[in-house]
Design a protein around this nucleic acid. Structure first.
Lengths: 148, 148
DNA sequence: GATAAATGGTCAAGTTGCTTGACTATGTGG
DNA sequence: CCACATAGTCAAGCAACTTGACCATTTATC
């Protein structure tokens, strides 16, 4: 693998990632959820199963807990989540999605499916499955960082 | 392709993209080029062949020309590029990389090769080649947008 | 050719999403 | 019980963008 090939692979990957993010966000907005940014989607993904604390979110997003706190304040104000007392720790608060938050998450899934659908038309279903498996194997466990 | 699979693919792709960006930037800094952000790398990629105007850069990066102008001002101040009069248009200025800018670009290529090398160890060279070809086929032609 | 409109670039001010620093409230270990 | 760590927020500052205004030059229209 020459350095130029590595650069071409990197450029293609980042280009595809940028386009995908853009399309998902567009699709979410088109489904009636305004005032949401891509970063919110990654927060929703962490909140979705059982909720999370602000500190959990901060680690997941790779930002300070103050930034995570501000983000939570924003999505609470917009009706996508709510703060509940934590059942085991009186200092902490459990942030959980509201019904609107769940609806927005489903909209993001639909938009993602649409974007991936365009790849299926280009590569075929089998190749896209291969792509998913390959990316899954090299995906890190660390925080979701902004791409640049 | 179910929506949950599309979501898993999207998450893996964005995760890999974020990690790749982080590693390339770390590698560039480790090679002695401080004060550079990932966005600069994408500007360098556009400037590398024959230089570009501020307006070209703005379109390439998907930002306003004012933002592109500020970015050029910054990389000029840091010694990575310089402004020259445009040979055909007295309004425009051709922004070209300095020798230090070229050295930084080579450092980014080396760092990218390192990051991709880790994937080769996980997937094997053949699979990575497949990955590159697949991504190349679905990569858009539009501007390089920040992933989120 | 003259003149209106479009284009390349910059200056200035405002917005936003993040940071660091300071603080309170609650939990944990000596 | 007391020192220290942790969850969360408030406040101020910063950095990378935005919008709006403007000048210099080129292109289009008559």
């Amino acid at each position: 693998m020459h350095t130029s090939e590595a650069m071409a692979l990197s450029a293609a990957l980042l280009s595809v990632a940028g386009e995908l993010t853009h399309r998902i966000n567009e699709g979410v907005v088109a489904r009636g959820f305004e005032g949401v940014r891509p970063a919110h989607g990654f927060a929703f993904a962490r909140l979705a199963p059982d909720g999370a604390t602000v500190t959990d979110l901060a680690a997941h997003l790779g930002v300070t807990k103050q930034a995570a706190s501000q983000l939570v304040e924003e999505i609470v104000r917009k009706g996508y989540a709510e703060r509940r007392p934590h059942p085991e720790d009186a200092r902490a608060r459990l942030v959980v999605l509201t019904e609107r938050g769940w609806a927005c998450t489903r909209a993001a899934e639909e938009a993602a499916a649409e974007a991936v659908g365009a790849w299926v038309e280009l590569l075929g279903e089998g190749e896209v499955r291969v792509l998913r498996q390959q990316l899954g194997r090299i995906a890190p466990y660390g925080p979701l960082r902004p791409a640049w």
